[in-house]
Design a binder for these strands. Structure first.
Ligand SMILES: [Mn+2]
Ligand SMILES: [Mn+2]
Ligand SMILES: [Mn+2]
Ligand SMILES: [Mn+2]
Lengths: 220, 220
DNA sequence: AATAAAATTTAGACAAAACTAAAAATATTA
DNA sequence: TAATATTTTTAGTTTTGTCTAAATTTTATT
């Protein structure tokens, strides 16, 4: 089963959307992929014919087991390449995504396996997202949104759920990166913003929309 | 000027063919690219429209300066990726080509520059072929075909001009790789075959077609 | 020079992946 | 429940890159 680049991009997007919401619908996927609903419908028919998803027209769709496996394979490649770009080529974490978006479609299985070994079989990509192993198994960690952390408890950043260039640039400005140690000093109920102390920097205030997307785990 | 994968494959093939023969013709290119002459003609029109080549129908074609530059860029990417695959991922030299054939189309200029630096700005790929620098400048070395080497003069393998899987497998069998030291012991005029001594191995005989494709330079 | 052979191009078709505009189905609301 | 709005699909095009078969041009041979 060799898939086209376009098919791979579709199943990957469907995989991410159905993580959140179970069933996926046409317009949501079209928005996610920056394309038109009609184009999505066209592709859904192809993917259904290849038994990569369950789909009844007008009723929404979700990946089959085969589809999920194919999606996880693309996710694995994407995150391994991101790791390579950040760790070895010294790209900033907010620059790796669009390049990995291309590299994830290189087809050699042996390449992926050798890359994985070369990188030291990493478990998380530069954004803190888990890297599936060759069987599609995903490592898990206990993490909480920064908005749910009690005051004065030091935590460490483990991932960010919004990875837009804008978001990542903003975090860079706050000196927040993966592994950064943070303490929440205050919780302002007026707008939900947080006063935080980033280790080695002066306290600052971040808005609720930012805080919500920063995931952390307790230190030790 | 972003080129499609297909356009890049065409200009790269034209570049290689015109190195040997100046002007390139339709059937030769079709054979090289494992496609049909009609498809070549179609693409020639597109490439001419983009001013990447000089072409008059029925008369053959050659790359323009812009076309040559674009081709060298693809060649550069191809060889840098081959170097990465062989040197860091420990692929055998006879396995890297088809993967680099895909990787060479990844579009980020910054990626290429960082990859080049990461690799230590190598001058030659795993087959001994020169890697153009970012300006398209190609390093040169004095090398001769093994068929033109006098007896008893030790030489070192610097490149092989036929890089088919069959050829590379055969060289592996003879324990010949890049950098291998060889001495020619005999020249059999009957069929042009050579008796050679590969350093650390017993003498053996290689056919003229093999010898012709092995390029070497004198030791010291 | 006429004819045959080879090389090349054109004409027409097809598949993949996208689009727009219109039709159909489903969901919402008055 | 009937009318309206939203969502989704269908119908018909477009672009890119490929193909086969036929026509054209060039080259080689009698
Ligand atoms: Mn992609
Ligand atoms: Mn990531
Ligand atoms: Mn290629
Ligand atoms: Mn090479």
């Amino acid at each position: 089963m060799p898939f086209t680049t376009s098919e791979e991009n579709y199943i990957k997007s469907i995989y991410h959307l159905q993580q959140a919401s179970g069933m996926v619908n046409t317009n949501t996927l079209a928005a996610e992929m920056q394309t038109r609903a009609a184009s999505v419908t066209d592709m859904l028919k192809k993917l259904k014919a290849k038994k990569l998803l369950q789909y009844e027209r007008y009723r929404g769709f979700r990946l089959s087991e085969a589809g999920k496996k194919a999606a996880l394979d693309v996710v694995r490649k994407h995150r391994l390449w991101e790791y390579f770009l950040a760790e070895h080529l010294k790209f900033d974490w907010d620059k790796v995504h669009p390049i990995a978006e291309e590299l994830e479609h290189i087809s050699s299985d042996e390449l992926v396996q050798r890359l994985d070994n070369f990188l030291g079989n990493p478990s998380f990509d530069p954004h803190g997202d888990p890297i599936p192993d060759r069987n599609g198994k995903i490592p898990v960690i206990n993490q909480l949104s920064l908005t749910d952390i009690p005051l004065k408890k030091p935590v460490r950043v483990s991932s960010v759920s919004n990875q837009s260039a804008q978001m990542l640039e903003m975090l860079k400005h706050y000196h927040i990166a993966l592994g950064t140690q943070i303490t929440v000093l205050n919780h302002f109920s007026f707008d939900g913003s947080l006063e935080i102390k980033v280790l080695k920097h002066s306290p600052c205030i971040i808005s609720e929309p930012v805080a919500k997307n920063v995931f952390v785990h307790y230190v030790q």
